[in-house]
Design a protein around this nucleic acid. Structure first.
Lengths: 108, 108
DNA sequence: ATCGTTAATCGACGATAGTCGATACTTTAA
DNA sequence: TTAAAGTATCGACTATCGTCGATTAACGAT
């Protein structure tokens, strides 16, 4: 029988799911996904109604697993969905099947 | 343009991902997935090395989203993976594409 | 160089979540 | 009915997380 996941792998898997385990982050992802163009933090703050520092905090978490990509343009930061990461994001079936934990893809 | 997810839907999505956003729960799922037969809480406690009340607590969380199914047999509780739920578990792409939040499937 | 704009970081607070030991509950066996 | 076994729940503690306001840092314009 195949061995169950060790603690280290389990934590790696969990860190992926943690990125989407918050309603605010789900909303930010949903918002970015519905805009063709990248959005600045200020725009996101306006539309979402969440505080600026809070938005920045959540975007950082999403960026750490490369779910979103950031590009600095002048004094602004442009955030957009990383389509590559969306497709590499692990599924529940991956956990059950014991698939190796994906690494966040390196992009631009 | 399609509307981004509202708060209520975002929280429903988040509650799915929260179920797998903990390393211990990932390990329990992984363990159950690799055993053909259902396991009792006692067996899971032995193999996982986690305290009995902690195991019970995590199994309850997994059962609430029907990721695992429980069947009482005598004084024991038999837990097993719910294959239906594994396949209906939302993916990151579902969030991005604005797919309706899945309902945990009703089983047996 | 300074000022204004934008975003990231810091510090603090309350809320939530994970863990454990102890206790209560449920079911079977005697 | 009692006792024993197995599990769920409770209470407490700690750690982590989400949020906000304030501050700092980075950049462009004047």
């Amino acid at each position: 029988m195949k061995e169950p996941l060790g603690r280290a792998e389990a934590e790696e898997y969990a860190s992926w799911f943690k990125a989407l385990a918050d309603a605010t982050r789900i909303q930010l992802v949903s918002l970015l996904a519905r805009r063709r163009e990248p959005m600045t933090v200020g725009e996101i703050v306006e539309v979402s109604g969440v505080g600026q520092s809070t938005v920045s905090h959540h975007l950082k978490i999403l960026a750490e697993v490369r779910f979103v990509l950031v590009e600095r343009r002048g004094t602004s930061s442009l955030y957009r969905i990383n389509e590559n990461c969306v497709s590499c994001f692990p599924t529940a079936a991956d956990v059950v099947m014991g698939k190796p934990v994906p690494e966040p893809p390196v992009c631009d």
